[in-house]
Amino acid sequence: MKYTEEHEWLRVEGDLVVVGITDYAAQQLGDVVFVELPEVEAQVAKGDEVCVIESVKAASDILAPVDGEIVEVNEALVDNPGLVNEDATGEAWFFKMKIDDAGVLDAFMDEDEYKDFIT
C-alpha cells in the first residue's frame, strides 16, 4: 500500500489503483454522513477534486492522486457513509483508477514513511 500527503491510500489491483482515505484521516474527519463519488469513465488529472466527504462538522475533498480514468466507484458509501469510519482501509474504498504507468506510484510514501508523516 502507498500513501499520499493528502492522507489517501493507494493499492494496486492488477492494472488498477484502488483509492481510499487512511484510518488517521477518517478519525480526524469524525462521523462521515455524506459521500459524493465521481462519474465512472471520468478522465481526471492529479489534484482534481474527485470526491466529496462530509462529516458532521466539516466538508472535505478527495483529490485524484495521479492522472487516469475512473473505472469503478464504491456505491456502498453513498448508502452507508459511516463505512468510512468503520473500515477506512478496507471496505470503504472510494474509487478505482486505470493508470498508464504503475511506476508513478513509486513516488508515494510507504507505510513507515506515512506513519512518520502523521506523527
Partner: peptide, 8 residues
Amino acid sequence: MRCAIEAR
C-alpha cells in the same frame, strides 16, 4: 484528502 474547514 483536503479539509475545507481546517484550511479556513
